[in-house]
């Protein structure tokens, strides 16, 4: 008996409609899987008075696809996504990221919306989704709004989500003909928080970087795109010299800190290397 969870009122709605009606008023904290929330409650970071358990809402657990996008229900468990054929085939970056997230026990409970809404700078599902330019659908009893994921995060543990909203769906546009690479650097080889994570998608056409998408975790107050690097590269000749020039700009995109896990210096150094390596690999990939 180590921790005492604070007391709270608990409600498990029967369906999505009831859930949305309930959170219209009052300060309800959604419990999607609870894997982060309960930890926060144990260490006193959060102490919600009312918890609404949305983990059973089957309306929020799905993966659908058409030619241009994959739609992921926010309540989908990470392990479900890992085992999902659509995710595996169409979203290899996300699949790789989830593979290296937490442990089997946590992936069986934790949801993708929970990972995003918790808004940790180290949320590993975010970089791949940012690369895809994913949009998140925030639903409430009065309707829904769609927000680009890049605008969803405000800072460490802060998002644009209102108290009366849930993250219903993640809309992931598909990328065609890209080179992909995902990295997670941690302090051991499994079950560990990221020190740096990175997802990258590159397209080269006619010897020109026609598109470059880079997103990173644990190197800024929130998961971010490396827009300065991307902008520098797009339209340039796909050559090492351009890559070398561009990657230094990443210091404009990120602002790593030193903490108990790693120093800012290390995070910056590794970020630059991973950028260099993945971009170089992309040249080889398209050379074939």
């Amino acid at each position: 008996m180590y921790y005492r969870l604070p007391q709270f009122e608990y409600l498990r709605p029967n369906d999505l409609h009831q859930a949305l009606e309930t959170i219209r008023e009052g300060d309800w904290k959604p419990l999607a899987g609870g894997t982060d929330l309960l930890l926060d409650m144990k260490n006193g970071r959060q102490s919600p008075k009312k918890i609404i358990d949305i983990s059973r809402l089957s309306e929020l657990r799905y993966v659908r696809t058409n030619d241009s996008r994959v739609l992921i229900g926010g309540g989908s468990r990470l392990q479900e996504l890992l085992e999902n054929v659509i995710v595996k085939e169409k979203l290899p970056l996300l699949s790789s990221a989830i593979y290296e997230m937490a442990s089997w026990q946590i992936r069986n409970i934790a949801t993708i919306a929970g990972n995003l809404c918790n808004a940790s700078p180290a949320a590993d599902s975010a970089p791949p989704l940012l690369v895809h330019g994913a949009r998140v659908k925030l639903i409430s009893s009065s309707g829904s709004r769609t927000v680009p994921l890049s605008e969803f995060f405000l800072g460490p543990r802060k998002t644009v989500l209102s108290n009366n909203e849930l993250m219903g769906e993640i809309d992931v546009p598909l990328l065609e003909g890209y080179y992909y690479r995902y990295y997670k650097i941690g302090r051991r080889h499994a079950f560990t928080l990221s020190v740096v994570s990175m997802a990258i998608a590159v397209k080269i056409e006619n010897g020109i970087f026609s598109d470059v998408r880079i997103a990173m975790g644990s190197v800024a107050p929130k998961p971010v795109r490396a827009l300065n690097v991307e902008k520098e590269l797009i339209g340039k000749e796909a050559k090492t010299v351009e890559i070398t020039k561009a990657i230094d700009l990443v210091s404009e995109d990120i602002s790593p800190i030193s903490d108990v896990r790693a120093s800012a210096e290390y995070r910056m150094k590794v970020t630059k290397f991973l950028l260099k390596e993945s971009l170089q690999e992309s040249l080889k990939y398209f050379w074939k």
Binding site: Y10, R12, G34, T35, L38, N108, I109
Partner: peptide, 18 residues
């Protein structure tokens, strides 16, 4: 670790009401 509907989960990090 226990199995919840056949899948391993940490019983320390799940509410009984869940």
């Amino acid at each position: 670790t226990v199995l919840l509907d056949g899948k391993p989960v940490y019983s320390c990090n799940i509410l009984t009401v869940q």
